[in-house]
């Protein structure tokens, strides 16, 4: 994250070099945009903090069931609803893996976590519109289902002949 600040500083210096006026205009515009959307980010922050206080236990307890397809589906539902940064999600996936949870379930969890955003709705709808948000998430959910199934087939965990 530090390097985003470094990039910003470099860009600002370059911008100042060319035009002081345009640089101020850019800063004002960025600040205005941020202040407009900030409450929506704060709402997400509350949702995520509350949901995560239940989710971590839930994930470790319930995602390791016998039935792979059911586990995969559950993983996709949990992954779609929650949202967490990678430095929490991947160690969690590592814990699941070490407990013998299948790749199918882990794929479902990781992919839906990235692709489908239920909690990010307050921000996404502002930028993409309500329709745009719903269609994008529906498409993402479809992709997630297909991908999870393909990953399961690849690892030989999902079989059609039995």
């Amino acid at each position: 994250m530090e390097y985003l600040y470094i990039i910003m500083t470099i860009l600002l210096i370059i911008s100042l070099f060319f035009s002081r006026e345009k640089t101020w205009q850019a800063i004002r515009r960025g600040t205005k945009k941020l202040l407009k959307i900030l409450p929506n980010y704060l709402m997400i922050l509350i949702f995520v903090a509350v949901i995560m206080s239940f989710a971590e236990d839930f994930i470790v307890t319930y995602l390791g069931g016998e039935n792979i397809l059911l586990g995969g589906l559950l993983a996709i539902i949990v992954g779609s609803i929650t949202m967490m940064p990678g430095f929490i999600a991947y160690p969690l996936a590592g814990v699941l893996l070490s407990r013998g949870v299948s790749y199918t379930v882990i794929a479902g969890f990781v992919i839906s976590l990235k692709m489908v955003g239920v909690v990010t709705y307050p921000v996404e709808k502002e930028y993409m519109g309500i329709k745009g948000t719903i269609y994008r998430n529906a498409a993402s959910l479809t992709i997630t289902l297909i991908l999870t199934l393909l990953m399961g087939l690849y690892y030989g965990e999902v079989l059609f002949n039995g």
């Binding site: 600040y5 600002l12 911008s15 345009k22 850019a26 800063i27 004002r28 515009r29 600040t31 945009k33």
Partner: peptide, 12 residues
């Protein structure tokens, strides 16, 4: 920083 960079993008 993300929004400042977006501001720069839109202006330049």
């Amino acid at each position: 920083p993300a929004f400042i960079i977006i501001g720069l993008f839109e202006v330049w």
